[in-house]
């Protein structure tokens, strides 16, 4: 249901929710001002006790500024830290249940392969999504079998099956032609 409902938002770039207000909280941090950008981001997350899926890390070594987003279903955070001054700002925005569905539809996804799934819950959701797909494949195959042994529905069922095949192939083949 999460995947089906979120299709309407993704397919039409539709946002029924209004942009939620953001709140910003400041923290003092103490992290080394050099090192791997993802490691630095991890240290900052540990110090201010933040969790979420990190999409990218922007680390400017000249200005010693680091920023990265941390996303959860329905909650977006952007962390901006000044490593020289030892300060960090966390911008939080609650985006609501519809956006949470879109987030779950797209996660883990095919982009940012090297870092995607850096939050354990996104990895678990990815496994659940795979299990759901295998289950759907099994359910559809068993459904077709059950229909095939129902004599009363065979004729009309075949018409619908044929219509489905016709719609599917006519759209796709016309697009590819």
């Amino acid at each position: 249901m999460i995947y089906a409902v979120s299709v309407f938002f993704l397919n039409h770039n539709w946002k029924p929710w209004s942009e939620a207000e953001t709140e910003t909280i400041s923290y003092n941090i103490s992290v080394p001002d050099e090192g791997n950008s993802r490691e630095l981001a991890r240290l900052i997350m540990q110090q201010i006790n933040l969790t979420g899926e990190m999409s990218w890390v922007n680390y400017n070594q000249n200005s010693n500024l680091i920023s990265f987003p941390l996303d959860k279903p329905g909650l977006n955070k952007v962390i901006r830290a000044n490593l020289s001054e030892g300060t960090a700002e966390v911008e939080r925005q609650h985006t609501g249940v519809w956006d949470a569905m879109v987030f779950l539809h797209e996660m883990p996804g095919s982009h940012l392969v090297s870092i995607r799934g850096n939050w354990i819950y996104v990895r678990i959701w990815g496994w659940l999504a795979d299990i759901t797909v295998y289950f759907i494949l099994f359910v559809t195959a068993s459904g077709v079998y059950m229909w095939s042994v129902m004599k009363a529905e065979k004729k009309t069922g075949l018409i619908f099956l044929g219509l489905g095949f016709f719609s599917f192939f006519s759209i796709i083949l016309t697009m590819l032609r």
């Binding site: 797909v133 759907i136 229909w147 619908f160 599917f168």
Partner: peptide, 18 residues
């Protein structure tokens, strides 16, 4: 039954691509 049969290939396509 009929909706399932009509959408069968679409479901398989989106499952596989998913």
């Amino acid at each position: 039954i009929y909706a399932g049969l009509y959408f069968l290939l679409f479901i398989w396509l989106f499952s596989l691509s998913g």
